[in-house]
């Protein structure tokens, strides 16, 4: 008698759960996006009206703001994470472990606590920063709180570890003797970066950048707490359609557009990455 493959047996529970909790919900939302406007069941005849409305009523705007914010966040996080990863890889040993742990810890503290803290810090007048400076030097300073810049700062703050850790994996794959050899042969710092370090760290950087982009694409707490809703981000636009406007099909269409944008960036990168090799580290 042939036994069923244990691999297939053991993956079944997770597969069934993710079908029920991830794939089917997205398909249900996709179905809703094809229903006539302002209906609440799936019995109507399919139509693309909602997508036409989404473009006609300027809903590409929140999607564009979210994508722009996500791209800017990813870029800034990469620029900040690169030297940090290099220093950590160079440091090695006990201290590096401690610092890495300290950088990882905030991931487990709620976003609402951390963003709230940032708001308290930046608050004008009696905020932690403005109040301290006023008390110490008698100078009152302004604030960037409730602007797009503050929201971007919050996005960078929340997503920095998600870029750093995959990048750290990549950087730790760079053999030190290769860098030394290139230096000995007279390569400049920029040449070492371009020819050796960047290509070797690329898979880690790609995973980190992807994670950062996708997570910031849907982020709305940063805009609500720090940005004072200076612009409408896509998640807020979808929520407004679902809750206040009671127009599920339009909200569903916006969700599908966001999912498509996510898939367009995720699939090409994920296809090229060797999961075994990255996870084995």
């Amino acid at each position: 008698m042939r036994r069923p493959n244990p691999g297939i047996l053991t993956m079944l529970p997770v597969l069934v759960f993710l079908l029920a909790g991830f794939v089917i919900p997205i398909l249900v939302v996709a179905l809703y996006s094809l229903m006539p406007p302002r209906t609440f069941d799936l019995a109507g005849s399919p139509t693309f009206t909602n997508y036409a409305t989404a473009f006609a009523e300027g809903y590409w705007r929140p999607l564009m703001w979210s994508a722009l914010g996500a791209a800017a966040t990813t870029l800034i996080c990469l620029v900040l994470a690169w030297p940090t990863a290099r220093v950590l890889a160079h440091l090695a040993g006990r201290w590096a472990t401690l610092v890495t742990l300290l950088i990882a810890l905030p991931i487990f503290i709620s976003e609402s606590v951390r963003l709230f803290g940032l708001a308290l810090f930046m608050m004008p007048g009696g905020g932690i920063l403005a109040g301290s400076i006023d008390a110490l030097f008698g100078v009152s300073i302004g604030t960037i709180l409730y602007t797009r810049l503050a929201a971007l700062l919050g996005l960078v703050y929340i997503h920095f570890p998600f870029v750093l850790f995959p990048l750290l994996l990549g950087v730790s794959l760079i053999p030190k003797d290769q860098v030394e050899a290139a230096r000995d042969l007279g390569a400049s710092g920029w040449q070492v970066f371009r020819e050796i370090e960047a290509p070797l760290a690329a898979p880690g950087a790609a995973v980190g950048a992807l994670l950062c982009f996708v997570l910031s694409l849907g982020a709305n707490a940063e805009m609500n707490i720090l940005g004072g809703q200076a612009v409408t981000v896509i998640t807020n636009a979808i929520e407004q359609r679902f809750n206040y406007a009671q127009d599920w099909p339009l909200g569903a269409a916006l969700t599908v557009l966001t999912v498509l944008l996510t898939a367009a960036v995720v699939f090409p990168v994920l296809k090229r990455i060797d999961v075994d090799r990255l996870a084995r580290r």
């Binding site: 691999g7 996708v214 709305n220 996510t262 995720v266 999961v275």
Partner: peptide, 30 residues
Amino acid sequence: FDWRGRRAFQRFLLLPLFFPQPVLGLALLV
């Protein structure tokens, strides 16, 4: 285990991580 669909399963499993959480929350609400 080594099995035929493993690489596909590994990638499929990563998809919910590479997905904006608030959008997932809203989809699940619907």
